[in-house]
């Protein structure tokens, strides 16, 4: 079956879902074998969202002038003791699309109507609905967004090999990576993905990720890749608990330090005392 359009793919998915629902048998052979533990390629050196661009100025160049200014102001504010640019430092989830950097290994669980992307970090479980549904008219924004996918058999061998995903309703604040590159505050970012195994190596998975956001001059496409150990019979799944940085607290919009003995301290010279009117 050659590569097919959206309508054809949806029809195929719907037919498959129906047959599964009727027979109550899940024909795994129709889907790619993406079992195992997927580890992001590149390791710590791959910490930038787009490794093809020089960090900092190169990535910043993709932002509209308004958001270049926002980014610069955020950097300045953080340097002056303000809130950290990276929301994950406060245990706020990385969200989409950043979660696909897979800082910790991920598991992909394929079922007929939903494919799950599971990450060890808290608040990072993706549901990719592949049952042919449409996006609801109203979606409650979430950090992980709402994702609808379509399986495709691009080489016509009778087995799906590619998962195309669109994700909307992504809640902010979120950033592309730890550098703090911002998304537009309107929350209208749309992320599309094409996930497939490498043609020459089924133990390498690629995710072509395109982000459309009003803070960008043009859609931004990056490819993240992951690898699994084919010889790993039973992967060890670690639990990653977010530990808030106890040396900093955010009270309202003000960032403060906490001394080693647990007392509140100014984060910047001349910072005002917090308002304690509720203690009177």
């Amino acid at each position: 079956m050659p590569y097919q359009g959206t309508t054809g793919a949806l029809a195929l998915v719907a037919a498959l879902a129906l047959s599964v629902s009727g027979a109550r048998a899940f024909d795994e052979s129709r889907f790619p074998n993406w079992k195992g533990q997927w580890v992001a390629l590149g390791g710590a050196g791959n910490a930038a969202w787009d490794t093809t661009l020089p960090p900092g100025a190169g990535e910043r160049a993709l932002l509209t002038p308004e958001y270049q200014a926002v980014f610069a102001a955020n950097i300045k504010a953080e340097a002056a003791g303000g809130p950290a640019l990276d929301p994950t430092s406060r245990c706020v989830p990385a969200g989409m699309p950043r979660v696909m950097m897979a800082v910790q290994p991920m598991e992909i669980v394929i079922t007929p109507g939903i494919t799950y992307f599971m990450f060890p970090a808290f608040d990072s479980l993706r549901h990719i609905y592949t049952d042919g549904r449409s996006f609801p008219a109203q979606i409650e924004p979430s950090f992980i967004g709402t994702s609808i996918g379509q399986w495709q058999d691009t080489d016509g061998d009778g087995r799906f090999d590619t998962l195309r995903i669109e994700t909307r309703a992504i809640r902010g604040p979120h950033t592309y990576d730890a550098s703090g590159i911002p998304f537009h505050k309107d929350g209208e970012a749309v992320v599309t993905e094409k996930v497939y195994a490498d043609k020459a190596d089924q133990n390498t998975l690629h995710d072509e990720i395109t982000t459309r956001d009003h803070a960008l001059l043009r859609p931004w496409t990056v490819t993240r890749s992951y690898r699994r150990d084919a010889g790993q019979v039973r992967p060890e799944w670690l639990e990653v608990l977010c530990r808030r940085d106890a040396s900093r607290v955010l009270i309202g919009d003000q960032n403060y330090k906490v001394s080693p003995e647990g007392l509140l301290m100014p984060a910047v010279k001349g910072q005002q005392r917090p308002d304690l009117k509720y203690f009177k």
């Binding site: 309202g252 919009d253 308002d275 203690f279």
Partner: peptide, 18 residues
């Protein structure tokens, strides 16, 4: 966005560093 006590009669935080 202001600090509040969790318990009745709770003392405010020590602000000696300020």
């Amino acid at each position: 966005g202001l600090l509040m006590p969790v318990k009745k009669g709770q003392k405010p935080p020590d602000l000696r560093y300020f």
